[in-house]
């Protein structure tokens, strides 16, 4: 995974990925920031991107096995949208390791699944 944007005189492509930014502060009575830590669980934030981001087209396949090359500079998240007419088990595999999801009941016509960029990292 590449570090995020260059800041300064550099000709390398910048990798902010068109992210917006979110800042959260606790301020005391004088307006100074108070440092804080999370207790145990991490806090998750959804930070959207500039909607003008160009994302690659959806890859449409009609098969039981599909592989995808993830070797790019940018962190990647993968979105699956599956249509099936029977129950199935969805398995995804990075390099040599397999991860199983629960078997899916077919009471919904489409099944959506997302692997975020933390999970695709360093594969």
């Amino acid at each position: 995974m590449e570090p995020l944007a260059i800041y300064g005189r550099s000709q390398i492509e910048s990798n902010t990925n068109l992210s917006r930014s979110l800042s959260i502060s606790i301020l005391d009575e004088k307006g100074n920031e108070v440092p804080f830590e999370t207790n145990s669980d991490s806090i998750e934030f959804f930070i959207p991107r500039d909607p003008n981001l160009r994302i690659p087209r959806m890859i449409l396949t009609n098969e039981t096995f599909h592989s995808l090359n993830l070797t790019t500079d940018l962190p990647i998240s993968i979105h699956f949208e599956i249509k099936a007419n029977f129950s199935y088990r969805f398995v995804y595999k990075f390099d040599k390791q397999s991860t199983f999801t629960n078997s899916i009941e077919v009471n919904q016509s489409y099944f959506n699944f997302m692997i975020d960029n933390q999970q695709t990292m360093s594969h």
């Binding site: 995020l4 944007a5 902010t16 068109l18 992210s19 917006r20 930014s21 979110l22 800042s23 959260i24 502060s25 606790i26 301020l27 005391d28 009575e29 307006g31 108070v34 440092p35 804080f36 830590e37 999370t38 207790n39 145990s40 669980d41 806090i43 500039d50």
Partner: peptide, 23 residues
Amino acid sequence: NLSLSNLNRNQTVSFRVRFSLFL
């Protein structure tokens, strides 16, 4: 569910969330 040390927990603070266009 946050923690911090050495501060008076009874004090009144301001919680600020700022969302901007980009980094």
